[in-house]
């Protein structure tokens, strides 16, 4: 039997023990890495979005260089792929997908959700995005709004800066960040009050 067809849990245990015995990794290191990865969440991206909504100069910097804009808010971007930010407007709705694997702006959104990695999302997002968003997320993009699908194929990672919803005048950043969900920053949903 091809050794790679071994049950995945057993394969992981065996690989880990071998690497630990060879001094390449340690259990403490694995635990530490798991904890730091768990700490990244869509709350980080939401803070960026909220700041861009209230601070026009930050919005400009964020669209120019997402990595620097994230670092401004204390988000650790070292060793991460460059972050690009796509601005949705009343004329254009952005949707991010990775048809080749599952590239995702993890530094600012955390682990990719299950649906993002699925074959059906990867297939349908580029070909019939309006139908996909309407049938699965009840997100209806009006006919006069252009849909721009961004296939994240290479070295950048992309997040969406959604349109600030009506009814949020006078809200502070923290309150605004509270209404921004993971899907809003990929473009499957839009922020709502």
């Amino acid at each position: 039997m091809n050794i790679l067809e071994t049950d995945s849990e057993r394969l992981l245990t065996a690989v880990r023990s071998l690497l630990e015995r060879k001094g390449i990794i340690s259990t403490a290191e694995v635990m530490e890495r798991m904890a730091s990865t768990d700490a990244a969440s869509s709350g980080q991206g939401a803070r960026m979005v909220a700041k861009a909504w209230v601070d026009p100069a930050y919005r400009v910097r964020m669209l120019e260089d997402g990595t620097k804009a994230a670092e401004e808010l204390g988000i650790v971007m070292r060793g991460m792929p460059p972050l690009g930010v796509l601005e949705s407007t009343p004329e254009v709705h952005n949707l991010v997908v990775c048809t080749l694997c599952s590239c995702y702006p993890r530094a600012v959104l955390g682990y990719p959700p299950f649906w993002y990695k699925s074959a059906s999302f990867r297939a349908r997002a580029v070909r019939d995005p309006r139908e996909l968003l309407a049938s699965e997320w009840k997100t209806v993009v009006p006919d006069d709004v252009k849909v721009r699908v961004v296939d994240s194929t290479a070295d950048y990672r992309w997040m969406v800066l959604p349109v600030r919803p009506a009814g949020t005048d006078g809200w502070d950043e923290e309150r605004l960040a509270g209404i921004v969900r993971e899907g809003d920053m990929i473009g499957v949903t839009v922020p709502a009050v």
Binding site: V126, V147, R148, T153, A154, Y156
Partner: peptide, 13 residues
């Protein structure tokens, strides 16, 4: 599929 003026943006070497 519907809306031919929708667009795709792709990173290509």
């Amino acid at each position: 599929e519907a809306k031919p003026d929708d667009e795709l943006l792709i990173e290509i070497f």
